[in-house]
């Protein structure tokens, strides 16, 4: 089977179609943010007092879903992951940025995506947040020479957790799934200890659906960590380090990209 995704990069859809497909993709995120209650800045603000644990739990669930989807589709030979864009890491800038981002989040109550979604539901505080965002962006861009050196410092390339933990991709996925579940449960416990009977009530249907999804995620991660056994289609440009299972290396002279430098 040929790797058919990413559709826009394997030429199965045109660039114009790719742009139009971005609309339903964004639509889904807008629906999800509204259903999660993230269009209410108070919900995000209260996350920082253990008063509402939904923010980190939603983030964990989103990341794990994306993670299992991305690497899982690659594992079954559907998605050519070497054609997916990976943002390189500039570690110090991203960490300082993260701290400033957290300060802004607890003061402002939104992040860029939730602010956009919230403005669409008529919330004026989100609109003010956006004005502030514009000012902050302009400050960064127009005074760029001041922080340019720092912005470009501590470049680490595309460094992934499997390199960091010195394990396989599947192993790193399993570790992150277990950490996500563990931290989510700890946060719920913290919420219970600090705020007592604030445990949100959800219907039996929702409860069982959630536990089923978490169980499925854990099961998928275990399979990826211990039983990845799919072969990949070799491709000239692909970088082997992006694959959970190394693709077969062909012996013809000149075609072995491991020998080719850069």
């Amino acid at each position: 089977m040929d790797l058919i995704a990413p559709l826009a990069k394997t030429g199965l859809i045109t660039q114009a179609q790719n742009l139009w497909l971005a609309i339903p993709t964004g639509f889904l995120l807008g629906v999800a943010l509204q259903l999660a209650g993230f269009t209410d800045g108070r919900k995000i603000g209260r996350a920082f007092y253990f008063n509402d644990t939904d923010v980190p739990i939603v983030m964990f669930s989103a990341i794990i879903t994306g993670m299992l989807g991305l690497w899982g589709l690659s594992l079954i030979g559907f998605l050519d992951i070497s054609k997916v864009y990976f943002l390189p890491t500039y570690l110090y800038p991203v960490m300082v940025g993260g701290i400033l981002f957290g300060i802004g989040m607890v003061i402002g109550g939104y992040c860029p995506g939730t602010a956009l979604a919230s403005i669409a539901t008529g919330k004026l505080d989100a609109l003010m947040f956006l004005v502030g965002f514009f000012i902050g962006s302009l400050l960064f861009g127009d005074l760029y020479p001041i922080w340019e050196t720092f912005y470009k410092s501590d470049y680490r390339g595309v460094i992934r957790l499997d390199h960091w933990f010195d394990t396989t991709i599947g192993g790193a996925i399993l570790i992150m799934v277990v950490i996500s579940i563990g931290v989510s449960l700890l946060l719920r416990l913290g919420q219970h200890l600090v705020w007592r009977n604030l445990q949100p009530t959800s219907s039996l249907f929702f409860k069982s659906t959630q536990y089923t999804l978490v169980g499925l995620a854990l099961l998928t991660a275990v399979v990826m960590a211990f039983f990845p056994n799919s072969a990949f289609i070799p491709s000239e440009s692909a970088d082997d380090s992006f694959y959970m299972v190394p693709r077969p290396i062909f012996a013809e002279p000149g075609s072995n990209k491991h020998i080719k430098a850069d």
Partner: peptide, 28 residues
């Protein structure tokens, strides 16, 4: 808060969606 985030999102090369969620899924 918006001011902080406008600045921080540029410094970090992305926000909650582009940097945290996507990068998190990519195991970065």
């Amino acid at each position: 808060g918006g001011g902080f985030i406008g600045f921080a999102a540029r410094l970090a090369r992305g926000c909650t969606s582009g940097q945290a969620l996507v990068g998190g899924a990519e195991l970065l």
